[in-house]
Write a protein that binds this DNA or RNA. Structure first.
Lengths: 200, 200
DNA sequence: CAGCTTCGATGACAGATGTCATCAATCCGC
DNA sequence: GCGGATTGATGACATCTGTCATCGAAGCTG
């Protein structure tokens, strides 16, 4: 019997996944959480054999929760995500995540994936793996990424400058460089591109 | 026995919901679809007693699918949504939708909601209903809404003007008016606000 | 028909934004 | 130490964007 925990901020989805997995005779859900902080606490408290975490889960993200759970318990983690972004897969694998499953995966396959990961093997969605292998490296510097992540919230340049403690002109320079590297016309387009690639 | 159909573009979620609902002895899933066009076709082909549709479902949205299914079969529809936006609830009710369920609803309540709606009554999430009742009317004109919906894609003004067949200056005028009404500093902020309210 | 409104457009202006050249300070390698 | 790269900043310039006044063409409304 594999003892699981589930974390997802949408109660309906989390409950539905629990129902799906409880149908399997060798799986049982022993804990649930609706945010990434609670997920770590539940993992420590219930000591499951494996954790299934949603990647898009406030506050922060599920990847940090995955890292902390692995550090605390050493159990395998399966990440479920809506947006299959190649660079995120890369970081997840680097963090020791055992399974990376987009929500476009048929529900009938989830149990098998969980068994695979519980057995110590890895599962990675074939399509995301392919894009992750063919994708070009991120050409942006750390500063550029930091600034783009603030831009993504829609703030004007003055606010961005205040948020990263830089002069407005400097922010414009970094944005100009990032836009040139990405071939984007506006900082908003650049921020969107960087996010879609998983860089921010 | 209530015969259901499910439509959601994420196979994992759709399958999990099916598992959840099949646990109920008086519910059975007789059809599934992964986009709004297929949803209408499946509804016509399988003639379920009730349809459960995701609101965020390409192409277009689940609301149009709900309208078409009601027009074709007259069966009750339950809309499930991630973003609980008041104005969308308003439009859904106007379209004759019987249930409006955010994904933050506990999974244990879904079956009861489906029975309620199947019995001809209505279910609306209390929190969204409250915001829908206290919300202020949309102050924007049809043109402003149309332009803001294009702006939301991140296009520069020239592209927006081309998309709506207007002169760039005219687009700027409409945007200026919309921004003034919404108290937004940039068109991006205005578009975000309008979307969060459910106006676009 | 005169008056009024609405819609789309134009021109002018200030401020924001993107591009570029340049510069000072710092860090690193040798 | 020297040379080079990196980081943050500044100023100049062109373009884009937001604001406003205005105008013409329809469309109604009496």
């Amino acid at each position: 019997m594999i003892r699981l925990m589930l974390a997802d901020d949408e109660d309906l989805i989390r409950g539905a996944l629990a129902a799906l997995l409880e149908l399997e005779s060798d799986l049982t859900v022993v804990g649930e959480a609706r945010d990434s902080v609670a997920a770590v606490a539940v993992a420590v408290g219930r000591r499951p054999d494996l954790a299934v975490l949603d990647l898009e889960m406030p506050p922060g993200d599920g990847l940090r929760a995955a890292t902390e759970i692995r550090a605390a318990l050493g159990i395998p983690v399966v990440l479920v995500t809506r947006h299959a972004r190649p660079a995120v897969l890369r970081r997840a694998l680097a963090a020791g995540v055992g399974g990376f499953v987009p929500k476009t995966t048929p529900a009938s396959r989830l149990a098998a994936i969980i068994r695979t990961v519980h057995a110590g093997r890895r599962y990675v969605d074939p399509e995301i793996a392919a894009s992750a292998l063919t994708e070009n490296e991120c050409p942006l510097t750390a500063r550029e990424l930091e600034i783009l992540s603030v831009v993504r919230s829609g703030a004007p340049i003055l606010d961005v400058a205040a948020a990263v403690h830089l002069a407005p002109g400097t922010v414009r320079n970094y944005l100009s460089a990032a836009m040139a590297k990405l071939g984007a016309d506006t900082r908003h387009a650049a921020a969107r591109q960087a996010w879609e690639q998983g860089w921010i």
